[in-house]
Design a binder for these strands. Structure first.
Lengths: 208, 208
DNA sequence: GAAAACATACCCATTAGGGGGTATTTTGCG
DNA sequence: CGCAAAATACCCCCTAATGGGTATGTTTTC
């Protein structure tokens, strides 16, 4: 009997998964959550063997909650179930400790296959995912982000519409410090021109 | 027997809907599509009574395909099934001829309720939707877009990262004309501050 | 420990964009 | 045809963001 917890903010999809698993022998859904925070509570209370989680969710996103779950319950298997097929998302979920990665564009039946695979100790990746980038170097999980921690924080604020002076207040630094970080990011990212940094911030799917 | 066609680019959700309706008396799914173009083909070939369609889909979006369907098959009922709870999306789907509007955040069971309602000639709106704006004036279906044609064109260019002078060149006008349009849009949209127009352009779910 | 990366803070300069408008012409609708 | 909306183009102003840097201190990496 495999116990499963699911986090998905679209209730309709949650219901669909429920319908799929409801009559399957050997699998029991022990909890469901519409956000990352609720998922953590479910995992703490119900101790599922497998967690199926979206990435883009309210409160705590799938990557962060996966890290928290793996830290507290290392034996719990986590599967990402998401619309994001980007290398960065995949890399981050794996780095966070996920054993599986499924795309919502794929048949719902894959959820079942993934749950069975990871519960046996295997990994499971959606066949639509090109995993070649994972072979580029052997320490992918320790690969450093292009942007530094401070840069990423500032980029997040930029994406939220904060001006440099607002960001400076939030971080207790001078405005010029924020502007210098901006310039560094623009240079690192190869951008140029007004608004390009904001555009980049908004184009990014996730903050890393 | 109600015949239904479904358009949804996330196959997993499509499968969930299928599971829901599969054993329901009185409803038959006669076709499924992953994009607007395929939906149109399905509707032409299968002539369903009810169409359930996402808005954000590849090729032809839900709004455009609804217009096409209603033009060619006025008796066919269309239900939007989407994550967008914005007034503009709702308004546009209604203007396109949709009889129903469902949110993916709601229970999957609502799909069934909506199908039954519209097949009886009623409208069906997700209870999570605030419809008060629909009462503002009685000619909602002919309601003009907030932004003028030129404004929308300029907004599109802004979203593509063009500067005002670049846009002016593209449109054979003075830069000041473009800037005036920008100010008009900012005022109409109730925005303020640097980058907000770009942000709005990028945040927009659809070009109207 | 040394070097590189990061963080902080400042200097100078330019300009795109937003804020306030006015005025005229063109277009679309009733 | 008249009127309102849209389009065009200009005036003035200010500043946030970007572009070029320098310099120092702190942290991280090898």
């Amino acid at each position: 009997m495999i116990t499963v917890a699911i986090a998905e903010d679209h209730q309709s999809l949650m219901d669909g998964i429920n319908l799929l698993l409801k009559y399957k022998e050997g699998i029991t859904i022990v909890g469901m959550a519409n956000d990352g925070e609720a998922l953590l509570e479910v995992v703490r209370n119900k101790r599922p063997e497998v967690v199926l989680t979206d990435i883009k969710m309210p409160k705590i996103d799938g990557i962060a909650v996966t890290k928290l779950i793996k830290k507290e319950f290392p034996e719990t298997k986590v599967i990402a179930f998401t619309m994001f097929n980007q290398q960065e998302a995949i890399t981050q979920m794996i780095a966070a400790g996920a054993s599986g990665y499924l795309l919502k564009n794929s048949p719902l039946e894959e959820v079942l296959n993934a749950i069975n695979a990871v519960s046996e100790g295997n990994t499971f990746f959606d066949s639509a995912i090109d995993l070649s980038f994972l072979n580029d170097d052997s320490d992918t999980s320790s690969k450093k982000p292009v942007l530094s921690k401070s840069e990423r924080e500032i980029l997040r604020y930029i994406g939220q519409g904060k001006s440099s002076s607002e960001i400076a207040s939030l971080r207790f630094t001078a405005v010029s410090t924020v502007e210098k970080h901006r310039k560094n990011m623009i240079h690192k990212l190869g951008l140029s021109g007004k608004g390009e940094l904001l555009r980049y911030a908004l184009d990014r799917k996730y903050d890393f």
